[in-house]
Design a protein around this nucleic acid. Structure first.
Lengths: 163, 163
DNA sequence: CATAATATTCCATTATAATCCATTTTAGTC
DNA sequence: GACTAAAATGGATTATAATGGAATATTATG
C-alpha cells in the first residue's frame, strides 16, 4: 500500500521535536509499533527507519568483537553506526525528538523548517537548503546517466537489449 | 535490542569519575552485570566493553606462551593489550572511575567535558576536540567512498545491480 | 461560510545530571 | 605500631533539561 512516500514541509519546535504527518505516523505504527531508529547519513540528513529495517541493515556484521580488536577500519565502521544511530519512539501525539548531536550534524535547528522525505523503507529529515541541493545532485546524476545510455545505444551490436 | 548507541556529552568530576546515562548503564548491567574492561585505543580514546566482549576479543590468541618466547611483534601485542586494559565495575549510582594513566593518554581531564559514544559492542570516551576531529575523519572517508560509488554508477555495464 | 482536523505553541510535571558534602580507607611519617 | 593527612567513594540535594499534554489557531474541505 505504498509506504513512506512524498515530501512534507514541517517545522521543528523549540525543544527539537518534530510532528510527523498522520500518514507517516500510520506507516510507522503499522510496521514497527512506533519503535524507530534514527541514523545520520553521510549525505548530511537524518534517516528514520523502522527498527526491523535498521537491524536488517546491521545484521551482516559477524564476530564483531574479534574484528574490532584488530582493525581500525572496522572500529571506525562500528563507531560510525553506533555514534550516528539512536533508538527512539514516536509519541502518542505523533512527535519524535531529534537528538541534539544529530540536529547539529544535519543543520536541523529548533524553530527551523525542514523537509520530511519518504524513501520507501523509511523517511529522511533534511535541512531545506541541503534538500534543494540534493534534488539538483540526483537530477544531474540521472541526466548524465541517461546521456551516456543514449550514446551507448548509438553503438552497433547493442540493439538486442534495448527494445 | 540495539545496545550502545548514540552520543552523550558528559562531564568528568574532580575525582576523575564519569556518570553514565541510565540507558548505557542498563545496556551494561544487561550484558555483564556491570563488570567491564577499560581499554585505551590507538585512536586516542578509552573504550569500555562488557567483560565477555573483551574476552572474546582476546580469545583468538592461542598458545600465547610459546609465541611470546619467539616473537617480538607478539610480545608487543600482548604488552599493549595488557598495559592498556583494566577491569573496572560500574558503581550503584552508574559511575565509573577512569584510571589516571588512561585519563592522561586520552586527554580526559578531571572537570572537563567528554563525549560518551556508543560503538554497538560497548562505548568509547572521547576528549571533545578529538571527537570532533574523528567525526570529520569518518565523514570525509564516507563522503569520498560515496563519490567513487557514484562515479562508478555512471560507467556502462554496472546498470544491472544499481537499477 | 462553517465545521472539522491538523499543527503549533505554551505550560506543567517528571526525570536526569552535576555539584557538594561526609565518611571511610589507605598510605606515609614519626 | 599508631596517628594524621590526603584521597577516593558513596550519597544526597539542587538545578536544569526534557517530555507529555492541553489549548488555541489556522487551513482545508464540504
Amino acid at each position: 500500500m505504498l509506504s513512506f512516500c512524498g515530501q512534507d514541509r514541517c517545522s521543528v519546535d523549540a525543544n527539537g521535536r518534530l510532528k510527523l504527518s498522520p500518514k507517516v505516523v500510520a506507516d510507522f505504527t503499522g510496521k514497527c509499533g512506533g519503535q524507530v531508529v534514527m541514523h545520520c547519513l553521510p549525505e548530511g540528513a537524518i534517516a528514520i527507519y523502522p527498527e526491523e529495517i535498521y537491524l536488517e541493515m546491521r545484521r551482516q556484521e559477524t564476530l564483531p568483537a574479534a574484528k574490532a580488536a584488530n582493525s581500525m577500519v572496522f572500529r571506525r565502521s562500528m563507531r560510525r553506526f553506533g555514534a550516528m544511530s539512536s533508538p527512539e519512539s514516536i509519541s502518542n501525539q505523533g512527535r519524535v525528538t531529534l537528538p541534539q548531536a544529530f540536529r547539529e550534524y544535519a543543520a536541523v535547528n529548533p524553530g527551523s523548517e525542514v523537509f520530511v522525505v519518504g524513501v520507501e523503507i523509511g523517511i529522511e529529515i533534511w535541512n531545506t537548503e541541503r534538500w534543494a541541493e540534493e534534488i539538483d545532485r540526483m537530477n544531474e546524476h540521472a541526466r548524465e546517466k541517461g546521456e551516456r545510455e543514449m550514446a551507448a545505444d548509438l553503438l552497433p551490436g547493442d540493439n538486442i537489449s534495448n527494445n
